[in-house]
Design a protein around this nucleic acid. Structure first.
Lengths: 151, 151
DNA sequence: TTGCGTGCAAAGGTTTTGCATGGCA
DNA sequence: TGCCATGCAAAACCTTTGCACGCAA
């Protein structure tokens, strides 16, 4: 089962990084920068980064999904740890369009709706691949303050 | 309000195309090919395509979202018509990972859940930007047939 | 006539691949 | 030692931009 046979420094650095940031998502470039800083400029080459990320996805340790870079507007791939304790396959994920925060929606009513959709609408949702975008409470408040009027 | 001042052939071709395919989504490249075939090889340049798509998004006539090309695995942008009658801002969208079919989930229970998430979880979901991925009933049946056992 | 829209080509950003070298087991 | 993983550079991919020309109004 073990696909990656070698436990290299790059692999370990990535695993450590994801373990330290279980609830956040990153672009390949973002991880490169973060690791470069954390290790005093050593860093990992882009090609290695992508190859390792691809391998980790294959092993099911992280997941990848498509998105838009909030700053540049470019299409990018986001990568995020898959918590082993956390059963991300059975709850929705809410991502704030402004700050990028990812929230796990662990909620009975949502779980019930998933059952309803599967039973009545004949559609089995794959929560691990589904992300609901919107505005979190913090950013909603900030927006209201900025615009003032118009409740 | 009218952003696009000119009603050019390209613009009209795109509007016609989206009107003829309200429930499907396309990559910019896919639209280019489809138009080239439909118009006997005339077609529209890529740059024009992207500029028009961008304009139509700005006008709210179509929406764009990030995804992965099923064949190549490359990251792409999908574009889809926004039905004027249909209020896509207030219901979920289900996309089948196998056949790509997009289903509008117009359902009271789902609408209630949206209210619940906004009130209790303090998160305002933007349905127009959110797509739930999974497996539709047709493809689920097909998969069962193929694998046979394991009900 | 005015100026937006178009097409072509070149650039931009992200991700992948080839090849020689280096490191894990 | 054998083989995988790494790094560099070049390529591939999708998308955007610059510029001159054409077309809608």
């Amino acid at each position: 089962m073990a696909k990656s046979t070698y436990n290299t420094l790059s692999r370990q650095a990535l695993l450590d990084f994801f373990a330290a940031n279980p609830d956040r998502q990153f672009t390949a470039d973002g991880i490169c920068e973060a690791l470069a800083k954390g290790r005093g400029g050593a860093g990992i080459a882009r090609s290695t980064m992508y190859r390792q990320l691809s391998a980790l996805c294959g092993e099911g340790l992280i997941q990848k999904f498509d998105g838009t870079d909030a700053v540049t507007g470019n299409a990018v791939r986001y990568f995020q740890a898959i918590g082993s304790e956390r059963d991300c396959a059975h709850h929705f994920h809410l991502k704030c369009l402004f700050c990028g925060e990812l929230q796990h929606l662990e909620c009975d009513r949502t779980a019930h709706l998933l059952g309803h959709i599967q039973d009545e609408h004949r559609f089995r949702i794959d929560c691990g691949k589904s992300i609901l975008f919107g505005v979190c409470s913090r950013c909603a408040e900030r927006e209201e303050e900025r615009h003032g009027a118009r409740a």
